[in-house]
Design a protein around this nucleic acid. Structure first.
Lengths: 336, 336
DNA sequence: TTGAAAGCGCTAACAA
DNA sequence: TTGTTAGCGCTTTCAA
């Protein structure tokens, strides 16, 4: 069966094409009984509008762009996938689709924006992995393109755009508080080097929880680039001290799993001898029994779309863009 | 700067619009000097055709659909992400985009096809996770929709479509041969229940390698649903035997990691006391040092697009659809 | 080899 | 409230 066109629906319902269009897009302009007649014809014929035609006319594609990143060697990346799945699933419930693109760096990503906007009339973008001095948000703002970021705008300049993020500090704070409540007094933080927004944020949570519990933090903070080997080395340095920490809060599962390796290599048991808590709740964490801070990615996707709708609705007379901070959950396992 | 239209290019090059179109789409019909003039105008104005208009006219969207799966609890799923990234990156080099969709099961996936074809004029689909009695390939074939599968058509009926797959049997055979070469004589296979195409294929590789080496396989084969706990239980049963195996070839990293947990829980060391080799080379495998069979996903994505081009080119007078079997690589680590 | 005309399916602007 | 007209940007006839 060939697809039904709007014209066919108009014939079927014995109205003009414009009335069909109105019945679907501006129902309040059509008398209820006319509208019913049209909707019945739509149902009978199984009519759905043709996107290309709609896009050509309205310059809106009902499609949002999202970048898919190359999966790093580490344990990260699962977060992006889960988010993308949730985003796609929820978007399509609202009549939106997600178009993928790949880009090696920010510069090429903005080039991709230009192309996708010109060629495909994308309505908006969903960005992930925001970072300090993010050139992408500046470009999108300058070009008046609707977008939301999953990840808050890091840095001093209060970027004025809609964003969702997970409260990393709350996650590490909860992790630290849990360790305190189970009797730990020397809790170290295994973080990334200063200057990464998310990393600094997560460090803050640990720091505050320690302060609130009256625990010392001096000498209990080490930094390492993300990775298993680096995490292992950093943990080795901590454990080699005369008075080693009894618990480790880590900025990522990669570092935590590296620490895990070092701990077991020393004949110690994570959780019993040294507590370890990671961040991201990757599958690998579940595998080995590593406690980890779990990001609410379904909620993040849903909120992204909520914010996007607001941005798209208000693009003429923009209200203050909203931002939402979601609280992560602590997934407790054997290690902490 | 507003986007340049084809009409603008025509004015700039002082030709008609059709000549511009011809110069771009059917160069042989245009005199070389005219063509040059047009191409220069295109470059000067930075013209790129508008997809919606092109699609409306030609019924081709230069877009392929791909389903993004919900990431299971286990370790799987990373394979899909890596494949999707490679697919997206390579597709866009050829002027194609990847449109995502989500579907809970095969039935809803075919419903999604119908919708995407009608509404978005998708040119083709790339399917992953083929299985026995796959309703999706039948639907696509019946509706004459171009597609490629990553995963061969399992089952007796020789489905007549283009596909790429990784030779799972070759992977487990290589793993088994490696274990044989390091002195193992009692090599068990920890697989999925009979009836899954990929699982049976992987079992075959182990079986053949054992037969070739003159090793017994009786009683050395256990099956479990994919998962960590199930893998652990299956490994426990194997290791509790009077004459336990000295090595385990596993159908997936999830099962292998489950076995890993059981081995270490017994105070044994994977690789030294019991060898374990998994399948998929997930990040978790790298984390713990699990040897694993690694699928060439970049190659799979590239081949998928090659095959898709052939299918699209030959859709009028179809040649025999091609199929390609790629050989996986054995990533050796501490465990085997 | 190039150009003129028509129309893909839809909706914005306007008229009735 | 409904219908008419026009046109989004492109390519496919067909004629020059």
């Amino acid at each position: 069966m060939p697809r039904a066109t709007l014209a066919a629906v108009a014939r079927e319902a014995a109205v003009s094409r414009q009335t069909v269009s109105n019945a679907l897009n501006a129902p309040e302009r059509v008398r209820p009984e006319t509208r019913d007649r049209v909707l019945q014809a739509v149902a009978r014929l199984g009519y759905r509008p043709h996107r290309a035609a709609q896009t050509l006319r309205t310059r809106r594609s009902q499609t949002v762009g999202a970048r898919i990143e190359r999966l790093a060697e580490g344990v990260q990346g699962v977060v992006l996938v889960r988010f993308l799945h949730a985003l796609t699933a929820r978007a399509q419930l609202q009549g939106y689709r997600v178009l993928l693109f790949a880009a090696e760096d920010d510069e090429r990503e903005t080039a991709a924006y230009a192309e996708l906007l010109d060629d495909h009339d994308l309505d908006a973008f969903v960005l992930t992995g925001t970072h300090l001095g993010d050139a992408r948000t500046a470009w999108l703002t300058a070009h008046d393109v609707p977008f939301v970021t999953f990840g808050r705008p890091w840095g001093s300049v209060a970027a004025d755009h809609a964003w969702v993020d997970v409260d990393g500090a709350a996650g590490t704070r909860a992790a630290t508080e849990h360790l305190v409540s189970t009797g730990h007094r020397r809790i170290a933080f295994l973080g990334w080097p200063m200057g990464s927004g998310a990393g600094d944020d997560r460090r803050t949570g640990w720091h505050r929880a320690c302060a609130a519990a009256g625990l010392a933090v001096a000498d209990l903070e080490v930094a390492a680039l993300d990775g298993l080997e680096t995490g292992r080395a950093a943990a080795a340095a901590l454990l080699a001290r005369p008075e080693p920490p009894t618990a480790l809060v880590c900025v990522s599962d990669s570092l935590a799993l590296g620490a895990w390796t070092e701990i077991t290599a020393r004949g110690l048991e994570p959780g019993r001898d040294v507590a370890v808590i990671g961040f991201d709740d990757s599958p690998a964490a579940a595998v080995v029994g590593l406690s980890s801070v779990s990001q609410p990615l379904e909620a993040a996707a849903e909120t992204s779309l909520d914010l996007l709708r607001e941005v798209l609705a208000g693009s003429a007379r923009p209200p203050a863009p909203r931002s939402v901070l979601l609280t992560p959950r602590l997934a407790l396992r054997r290690s902490g």
